[in-house]
Design a protein around this nucleic acid. Structure first.
Lengths: 293, 293
DNA sequence: GATTCCATGTTGCTTTTTTTCATTATTGAG
DNA sequence: CTCAATAATGAAAAAAAGCAACATGGAATC
């Protein structure tokens, strides 16, 4: 059956609405039930659906055909896709309906932006610095940046790189003052204008440390660092909308950590295996789980 | 009819890639075939699929189970939804895709998965609980989960909700022992099997607190909580690939925080304006920047 | 070399879906 | 009003799809 390949674009939801308004008795009931609970419709077997709409099973099949689908299976897939793209709620369910879409869209574009624009050479250079470093200190303050700093520490220690994160401004300054050649500091800041981080980076460089920064181009932090990954994420004006910058910071941290891991190679694998092994002691199907929950 | 079958968010695409890289012989072939032509996979019957991948039919069923689906039907629906939303990110099937592509693809599908599958009613319920709470305590340990817990605290205090995060297992236990009605605990765990978090949740509930959990369906943590947002983002064995679970946790936290913000409304806006105002004192173009760097 | 375990296939059963055919509304011309 | 003609619907059986139980063979382990 080659017909599988021919999948004409059908807006099932539109057809459903049409039929709900002007179809035969059974078809109307079916359409209404499906629109009322599309999630159920995509999962339930034909007898459940028929029962719920108080029609017979063949009626359901005929109904699907009338919608332009090849049968119930095809209909379910189309409905699932419609629900997935249109949003879970086919019926408008208030302001909240769009929240997941908003968040997803912001996150997607932030991630695409940084993944697409990151400079591979700079990334390689940063990874080389970190692999060669005696120790890495990650600085970040303010929420998103501190999260990224903590994350970098988590990622690096698993690879056997000595790493610490400092989200406390005073501690940032103190550790920077104790820096020396061989230390690499990694600074995160969305604005690039967090005083403690800028000063910590400047101080650390003064004492011979290398400084990598993920921050806004042209900012003071960018000027203070020796290797900059510039990025700018549009925040938008909706104050309730969460900032997608966190996703960008996380993605960049992932890329850096992955580059470092590739350079370290086998020893890193062994170290992570060990971590996983200990995790497995207390959890049976640890294989399926990430390092570190 | 409350029999809304709990449909945990499962990142099928990430898992498919995982298996395509490091699964058993048959599973690899299946995953490869599906990734190569997901449209076919969503429509073909089990025998076609088995034939194409040169495996037996039960192998296909087992494969779907291994992916976290209840069976082939469930898998098809999930795949269809993934294709409908993240379609263009599915392609980088080969290992040759660079690190940025891998990371972006994993993040995209993780985010889509949780944004698409989260139960809006449960989300509303959780937000109501938090708005009404005297205090919120966020628990998470192990890296990804602790990040999410910290993030929730950051987000909630900006809205004027009293919130604290505890990533230290002992502190989790102690704060839980001091719980009482009016306290809402929010627990994060990818595995759902972190002892300190499970026990903290159980203890807190014992003393009358409500417990919301973002965790794996069927886990002990899920059993202990009063309101569960089930999700499964599988990690597999590709040790260098960063876990996309963090993106999923972050996205769910975003959704929860956004729902809370919408409920609080004007007072939250005023509070955030104040925070921004103070931020602006030290930073000229704060308008373009997110709250909290 | 024996044993255990794991992945996979074979067979047959259950569930789900569709077809076939009979029955019941519905409509409109006489 | 009545009687086809047609459309809509349902019951039952057939077909298809999916799945469980068990069997087998080969790799890992002792």
């Amino acid at each position: 059956m080659i017909a599988t390949l021919q999948r004409p674009a059908i807006d099932v939801v539109a057809r459903l609405r049409e039929i709900a308004a002007s179809g035969s008795r059974s078809d109307q009931r079916l359409a209404a039930e499906i629109l009322a609970d599309p999630d159920f419709a995509t999962h339930a077997a034909i007898d459940r659906l028929a029962e719920r709409a108080e029609v017979s099973e063949p009626t359901v099949t005929r109904f699907c055909r009338a919608l332009g689908c090849s049968g119930l299976r095809d209909f379910k897939v189309r409905l699932a896709q419609a629900v997935a793209t249109t949003g879970r709620y086919i019926r408008p369910a208030g302001r909240e309906g769009g929240a997941p879409q908003l968040i997803a869209a912001g996150a997607h574009s932030a991630i695409e932006t940084v993944c697409g624009a990151i400079d591979a050479d700079d990334l390689a250079r940063a990874a080389d610095l970190i692999v060669a470093a005696r120790m890495v200190r990650a600085y970040g303050s303010g929420g998103a940046s501190s999260l990224a700093a903590i994350e970098l520490e988590n990622r690096l220690f698993r690879l056997g790189v000595l790493a610490a994160s400092h989200v406390d401004g005073e501690v940032q300054q103190m550790t920077a003052a104790a820096a020396e050649p061989g230390i690499v500091v990694v600074a995160y800041s969305v604005s690039g204008e967090i005083r403690s981080v800028i000063e910590a980076v400047a101080t650390a460089r003064l004492y011979g440390a290398a400084a990598i920064a993920f921050t806004a181009p042209g900012s003071h932090l960018a000027a203070a660092a020796s290797l900059v990954f510039p990025f700018r994420i549009d925040e938008g004006t909706d104050i309730f909308r969460p900032s997608p910058a966190r996703y960008a910071l996380l993605a960049m941290t992932d890329m850096l950590a992955m580059s470092v891991a590739e350079r370290i190679g086998a020893p890193a694998v062994e170290r992570m295996r060990r971590i996983k092994h200990h995790q497995a002691l207390s959890n049976r199907d640890a294989d399926r789980l990430p390092l570190g929950d």
